[in-house]
Design a protein around this nucleic acid. Structure first.
Lengths: 245, 245
DNA sequence: GTCTATACCACGATAGAC
DNA sequence: GTCTATCGTGGTATAGAC
C-alpha cells in the first residue's frame, strides 16, 4: 500500500534536499526560492540538486508529488469507504471526501499545513505547460473517481455540464485554500480558537453544494437579452487567430 | 470622469515600455519576462525601465492598474446604471454587472483579451505581500459597492457570511477566467463559433447564484468561550482522525 | 529631466576533477 | 557521489551624456 510515487531514495542527501526545499518553496514560492538557499539549509553542495533531481523544476515537482499523491489517495480511499457502506451517496458526502483530507493537511504542519495548500493553488494556475501537465496527470485518477460519484448523485446534469461544475467547484476550492486572505481572516477574527479551518469548510460546503445542484443554465441563444448571437461578435475570431508562440 | 489612475505621461518612452511589457507579461508571465526582452521590444535602453518605473515590480503593477482600474470602474458604472433604474436588484443583475465587463475584456485583444484575465488570476494568488496589497487596494472600491448591493439582495446573510460568499464567488470566478483549461476547452469544442465565452459565463452564472443563495451553514457548537479541541466537530474531525502516514 | 553605457551581484546550470 | 570553478542571464544601481 505504499505510495505509488517513490523511486529509490539513494541517500540522505536527496532526502535532506527535499525536506529543505519543502519549507522554502511553501514559504516563498517557486521563483523566490533559490537553490543556493535550499542547499545551504540542507547543508549540501549546490550541484547536488542538479545531480539528484536534474534541476530546480524537477525538484519542485518531486516535492509536490510527495505531498499531493498521498492527499489524493486519501481522498479516493475515503470515497471508497463511503461507497462500500451501502446505497447512493449524497453530494455532501462526496464533497466531504474531498475536503476532509485537505483539512487534515491544513492542520498538520508536518505535512506543510496551509502553506502546502496555498502552494498547490498557485501551481494550479501556473501557466507553465510542464507544470500543468504534471498536475493534471497527478490529479486525473482522483478527479475521475469523484466525477463518477458526483455524476450518480446529480443525474440531472449532463456529462458536459457536470464537467463544468466540477471545474467551477475546484476553482472555488483552490482559490479558497490558496488565498492567503482566507486563512489570515479567520486567524484574525478568532485568534485563540481551534477549528477555524473546519469552520471555513463548513461555510464553503453549502456554497459548493448549492452550486452543484443549481438549475441547468439556459443556453438558448434566442433570448431577447442574450448577449451574443454569432453575427454580433466579430472580435472573437480575431482573438483566437492570435499568434501562438 | 477620466480614469483615476494615470499620472503624467511624460514621453513616448514610458508608453513604449508599458505597451511592450503588456504583451510579454501576459504571454509569458511575470518571472519569465525579462526586462531586457521588454526594453528590446520597446526599443529603449534597459535602464529606462528603472528610471521611469523604479523596477520590474512597479512596471508590472503600473501595467496591471492600467487595465484593471477601467475594468472595475466599468463594473461600478454598470451597477450604478442598474440601481438608478428603479427597485431592488436581483442577484442575477448584480452578478451580470461583474461578469459582462470581464467578458468585454476577454473578447478584446486590444485590452489583453483572455491573457489579461489569466494574468489577473495568477496575480490574485501570488504570495508577494506587496502585490497582494496592491491588488486588494485596487479592488476595494469595486468590492465594497458590490458587497453592499449583494447585501441588499441577500438580506438573510449576515455580514460575515456575505463576506465569505463573495470570497468564494470571486475565487470561482478568478479561477475560471484565469485557468487556461476553460478557454482551451471551449475553443477546442467549438472552434469556429463566436460567443463561446458568453456560453461559459451562462454556465458559471447559475452556479454562482445558487452558491450565493445557499442556505446558511450550520456552524453548530461553536461558541466564543467554548474552545474546540480536535475531536469536537463531529462529522469532520472524526473522519479527519484517520491515519496520517 | 531623459536617456545611455556599463558595472555589479545573485541566479540556475554544467563540466570536470576527485 | 561530491565538490569547485565557471558560464550565461537575470534585476538593479550609478555615472555621465544630452
Amino acid at each position: 500500500m505504499a505510495s505509488s510515487t517513490e523511486q529509490k531514495l539513494s541517500g540522505a542527501t536527496r532526502l535532506r534536499i527535499v525536506n529543505a526545499a519543502e519549507c522554502l518553496f511553501m514559504e516563498h514560492g517557486f521563483e523566490a526560492t533559490s537553490l543556493r538557499l535550499v542547499t545551504a539549509r540542507a547543508k549540501v553542495n549546490l550541484a547536488a540538486v542538479n545531480y539528484h533531481f536534474g534541476g530546480k523544476d524537477e525538484l519542485f515537482r518531486a516535492m509536490l508529488a510527495q505531498r499531493l499523491d498521498p492527499l489524493n489517495e486519501q481522498r479516493i480511499a475515503l470515497l471508497d469507504q463511503h461507497q462500500r457502506s451501502g446505497g447512493p451517496l449524497s453530494c455532501e458526502t462526496i464533497l466531504s471526501a474531498m475536503l476532509i483530507p485537505a483539512l487534515g493537511i491544513a492542520r498538520d504542519p508536518r505535512r506543510g499545513g496551509k502553506d502546502f495548500l496555498r502552494l498547490l493553488g498557485r501551481a494550479y494556475v501556473d501557466p507553465s505547460p510542464v507544470l500543468r501537465h504534471f498536475l493534471s496527470e497527478r490529479y486525473a485518477p482522483m478527479v475521475a473517481r469523484f466525477k463518477d460519484a458526483f455524476g450518480r448523485a446529480l443525474p440531472q446534469l449532463g456529462k458536459q455540464e457536470l464537467t463544468w461544475r466540477l471545474h467551477f467547484m475546484m476553482g472555488a476550492l483552490a482559490y479558497t485554500l490558496a488565498g492567503t486572505d482566507a486563512w489570515k481572516l479567520i486567524a484574525a477574527l478568532n485568534p485563540g480558537k481551534a477549528g477555524n479551518d473546519a469552520l471555513l469548510l463548513r461555510r464553503l460546503e453549502p456554497f459548493l453544494i448549492a452550486g452543484l445542484k443549481a438549475p441547468l443554465p439556459d443556453l438558448g441563444d434566442e433570448h431577447p437579452n442574450a448577449p451574443a448571437p454569432a453575427g454580433k461578435v466579430k472580435s472573437l475570431a480575431g482573438n483566437a487567430a492570435r499568434k501562438a508562440a
